[in-house]
Design a protein around this nucleic acid. Structure first.
Lengths: 207, 207
DNA sequence: CTCGTTTTTGGACGATCGTCCAATTTTTGA
DNA sequence: TCAAAAATTGGACGATCGTCCAAAAACGAG
């Protein structure tokens, strides 16, 4: 093995650990209210460590964004690819709904980071990367839908995926904002909207 | 007139002016990166003035949120209420599209403030107030659509408005994030999505 | 004009921020 | 085993933050 492989792996692991802790800290307090000292304390290390593994605060935040949605995206992709042919869509909606309830703070962080990216160009690039993956996921889902229904979409593929993405994004944000609304109700509305809208993509709109 | 009416009016005007300047400053730099000194300098007043008219920074921000979307909402409501009966929907979509191009920084600020509200309960209340007005606007629009088409919605009224809101919200955010995409293209997609989706609200989804 | 009130100023205050570094401890490799 | 390298510490540094206040300036009523 190469000389630096052992230590490099160790360093990578620690970096990953710090990114994870930073993500948790950010999810709890939000971008505008979190400090490196918060993250250091939460991670059980000293302040200097953060600058040992990350060149700057911006660097750390970039790493957080880059590694952030991997888990959810991976889970969704697995669902799209491996679910049984006759029940993958309900399964997908179920996964989304579960995440909507269990990962609320992570979704909240995601909107926070997207808003920040609108002011910080270097963040915007990473955000685009994640959104591109989700768009790609939706496109594949739409193709699968077309195959199953043996019917073409009533519109351009990219337009359809953009619209589906926007709808899901907007509904997750709404669910986050309506914190007091019963979770079951929000979930039902969410699932109904996705189902209804996917169906509507196959029917032409007669003005 | 009551004794304090003259001076009160003057003070109110100054308050409104400061809120306006603070809004511009926030729209430019974002919540996380703006300071009271920025706002004071931009307004051409000293730092102490801000604490003379607003109890705290939080107070000022609350006032900004409260007065923020009034202009757009008023314009939309006027459009819904006063537009000619046969062309109000295209007119509404046009207004939204124009705002999407001209008020980009204000829309950006709106997402920033919503994200902040997810971490600051006292902001959340104001955000809810604005969203409630927009929801109400959409409900009235849907009712008008039902009257015109002489057909009922294929779903609950509140569900429909929630979904419409989410779609528009998500598409505006997407348009903001895709800064480089040609404005005309984004606008066309936005208008198409709204039109198509409104039509789909009247058709039952089979499956 | 004059005096009490309102408005405005400019700076001080403590707290907290990101950054940085010298010194120390821990780990590693020959 | 022991010196070189990597990892970690804890605090110092200047900058900037929101807050606050005493004093000056502008204003308005009698």
């Amino acid at each position: 093995m190469t000389p630096p492989s052992k230590s490099q792996a160790k360093a990578e692991a620690k970096r990953a650990f710090l990114i994870e802790q930073a993500t948790a800290c950010l999810a709890e307090k939000g971008y505008a209210n979190v400090s490196l000292r918060d993250i250091a304390k939460e991670s059980g290390v000293s302040l200097g460590i953060l600058h040992y593994y990350f060149a700057s605060k911006e660097d750390l935040l970039l790493a957080v964004i880059a590694s952030y949605k991997e888990r959810l995206i991976d889970e969704l992709e697995r669902e799209v690819v491996t679910a049984p042919l006759d029940s993958w869509l309900p399964a997908l909606v179920t996964v989304l709904g579960r995440s909507l309830q269990e990962d609320r703070k992570l979704h909240r962080l995601w909107y926070d980071l997207q808003a920040q990216a609108l002011y910080t160009p270097v963040f915007l690039e990473q955000v685009h990367r994640i959104r591109a993956r989700l768009h790609d996921l939706i496109v594949r889902m739409l193709r699968r839908l077309q195959t199953e229904r043996q019917a073409p979409l009533a519109m351009d593929e990219n337009a359809a995926s953009s619209i589906v993405y926007s709808l899901i994004d907007g509904m997750i944000l709404q669910s986050l904002l309506d914190e007091d609304k019963p979770a079951a109700e929000a979930l039902a509305l969410f699932q109904f909207a996705v189902q209804h809208f996917l169906a509507s993509l196959f029917t032409l709109d007669q003005k």
